[in-house]
């Protein structure tokens, strides 16, 4: 197949840029870093809270992002989001930290959790996503809580779409200030404020009902997905990022 003209031009540009970068490196004798590399470096430096499992930490980039909102998308039933919640509660209990669960739909069932792990959990039953975010706005200011779980798995899109973007940003500001961890459990992307969006796509088998928890957790695969505002999809040209060279 013949290469399109536009693709050929783009490839030429990349080759020219690489040669320029090499030339600059030779002349200046210093380390040359691109803007994209700088961003990646900054991301690596961000605080992470270990999930308590090495395999998960590896796929999460060191753990759950602190001072950020992470969306955990379980598009279908029985993809293991409950196991993730159980692991989060166990980890927080182990580290003797308080956890708050904002449960929209109030479907939380204590049967699936160890009584130990529930000791530090404060449950808040919310009637709607809007109420949950208002509650999160209140509680995220409290320095006593480290981990916030927002369960929107049973919430309809019309429900969480009523939450204003400004509310999400206000909450994000407070999370950053406190370096807290916030996880939003949902069936689909909810907000563009989320720093990280992880998807659980693989459905667990019938045998998992009697499988060992640790084995089941090991089978969970997080898939990173691009954070795009669910309300307005980005247009193609907005994703094009120019290469900015920085001399370090």
């Amino acid at each position: 197949m013949r290469m399109k003209n536009s693709e050929k031009v783009a490839l030429d540009k990349v080759v020219a840029l690489q040669s320029l970068r090499q030339q600059l490196g030779e002349e200046l004798g210093q380390k040359i870093t691109s803007g994209a590399e700088l961003l990646d470096e900054q991301q690596r430096r961000e605080s992470r809270w270990s999930s308590g499992r090495e395999d998960w930490d590896a796929s999460l980039g060191g753990g759950w992002a602190q001072g950020q909102l992470t969306e955990l998308i379980a598009p279908e039933v029985s993809t293991g989001s409950g196991l993730v919640m159980a692991q989060l509660l166990a980890r927080a209990r182990q580290e003797r930290r308080y956890v708050m669960l904002l449960d929209v739909g109030q479907g939380f069932s204590m049967e699936g959790f160890s009584a130990n792990d529930l000791e530090t959990l404060l449950w808040v039953g919310c009637a709607s996503a809007k109420e949950a975010i208002e509650a999160l706005d209140v509680v995220s200011r409290d320095e006593n809580f480290f981990l916030f779980l927002i369960d929107l798995r049973d919430s309809e899109p019309s429900d969480w779409r009523s939450v204003r973007a400004s509310q999400w940003y206000r909450v994000l500001g407070q999370l950053r200030q406190r370096e807290s961890v916030a996880l939003l459990f949902a069936r689909q992307a909810v907000t563009a404020v989320a720093k990280q969006r992880l998807e659980l796509k693989e459905r667990l088998s019938w045998e998992s009902l009697e499988g060992e928890r640790e084995v089941l957790k090991a089978s969970i695969r997080f898939q990173r997905s691009q954070v795009v505002a669910p309300e307005c999809k980005r247009r193609p040209w907005e994703d094009c990022r120019g290469e900015i060279l920085a001399v370090g």
């Binding site: 029985s78 293991g80 409950g82 196991l83 919640m85 159980a86 209990r93 182990q94 003797r96 739909g105 479907g107 939380f108 069932s109 049967e111 699936g112 959790f113 160890s114 009584a115 130990n116 798995r153 049973d154 667990l204 998992s208 009902l209 009697e210 499988g211 060992e212 928890r213 640790e214 089941l216």
Partner: peptide, 17 residues
């Protein structure tokens, strides 16, 4: 954290409607 007490170490987590 005391010794692990009570269930569950197996199975999935139930969420009620």
């Amino acid at each position: 954290v005391r010794e692990h007490c009570g269930p569950p170490t197996i199975g999935l987590v139930l969420r009620r409607y």
